[in-house]
Amino acid sequence: MINYQQLTALAPVWATLSRLIDYPQPDTFSATNRATLATAPQIPDPVRTQALACFDQLARGSRLEQEQHFADLFELNRRYTLYMTYYKMSDSRERGTVLAKLKMLYEMFGVSEVSDELADFLPLMLEFFAYGDFLNDQRQADLSLALGVIEDGTYGLLQRASVDSEDPYIQLISVIRNLFKACLVKEASVNA
């Protein structure tokens, strides 16, 4: 079961994580983005510590070095991609159906894509959770599609990335996964 209050309260964090996991821009590693991670009360302390460590490691070096690191890991390396459905569906027809459903989901909650990226691109999905208006919407259950895609995709990426598990981008994927898990409420089992 999804805790929609927590999911919504993390909106600034989702926006910041979207910037951090995407190709570095001039303001990616700004003091404002770091402060969002450092001060958001909804982030559990162990996740906050990991997120700040990732931020600090990724912020090191020149902008060119930052861009090169990202490109080497996600653009020039066939093992890792930020397209979350790829890990479970590769290039199957089913993947196309899920991408279409995600695009409709974004539009249904008032987020229109202004990117050329596919609907399962992790930074785009994080932006959806940052800017979507779903707190009091009767269609909240439909969000389970996007959450499931993130769950499966981050799991698949982390499984493949075991040899690079210390890379700060891979650690950032773990942070994202743990924050989404923090938005889930375990239903009490009935043992009568």
Rank of each mutant, 00 (worst) to 15 (best):
35 A>R: 14
165 S>K: 15
179 L>P: 02
118 L>S: 10
167 D>P: 06
59 A>Y: 11
92 S>N: 09
143 L>C: 13
72 D>R: 15
107 E>F: 03
143 L>S: 04
24 P>D: 10
132 G>C: 03
143 L>Y: 02
45 D>Q: 13
56 D>T: 12
153 G>D: 01
109 F>L: 08
41 P>G: 07
80 Y>P: 03
66 Q>E: 12
91 D>T: 04
152 D>C: 09
139 R>S: 09
119 A>D: 06
15 A>Y: 08
165 S>P: 00
60 R>V: 07
116 D>P: 03
187 E>F: 06
63 R>A: 14
25 Q>K: 15
41 P>V: 08
108 M>G: 02
178 N>E: 15
128 F>C: 12
90 S>K: 15
184 L>P: 00
168 P>K: 09
110 G>V: 00
66 Q>H: 13
50 Q>V: 02
23 Y>W: 13
177 R>N: 06
155 Y>L: 06
55 F>R: 05
39 T>R: 08
138 Q>E: 15
59 A>L: 09
180 F>Y: 11
14 W>G: 03
127 E>C: 06
143 L>D: 10
21 I>T: 06
51 A>R: 01
41 P>I: 03
30 S>M: 10
99 L>E: 07
24 P>G: 09
160 R>A: 14
153 G>E: 02
108 M>H: 14
121 F>S: 07
5 Q>A: 13
100 A>P: 02
127 E>L: 14
186 K>C: 09
62 S>H: 04
169 Y>A: 01
3 N>P: 04
11 A>E: 10
58 L>D: 12
23 Y>Q: 07
191 N>M: 12
173 I>W: 04
177 R>S: 14
190 V>P: 00
150 I>R: 00
81 T>R: 14
111 V>D: 03
83 Y>V: 01
146 A>I: 11
122 L>C: 02
103 K>N: 12
12 P>W: 04
34 R>V: 05
11 A>V: 05
48 R>S: 01
109 F>Q: 11
35 A>T: 13
62 S>Y: 06
94 E>T: 14
64 L>P: 00
189 S>G: 08
56 D>S: 12
7 L>K: 08
46 P>G: 12
124 L>I: 02
179 L>W: 05
112 S>M: 08
54 C>E: 04
121 F>P: 03
62 S>E: 10
58 L>K: 11
117 E>M: 06
57 Q>W: 00
94 E>H: 13
137 D>T: 09
129 F>E: 08
42 Q>W: 03
116 D>S: 13
154 T>L: 15
73 L>P: 04
42 Q>F: 04
96 G>W: 05
176 I>F: 07
178 N>W: 00
94 E>C: 00
99 L>M: 15
159 Q>C: 07
12 P>C: 10
11 A>P: 08
42 Q>T: 13
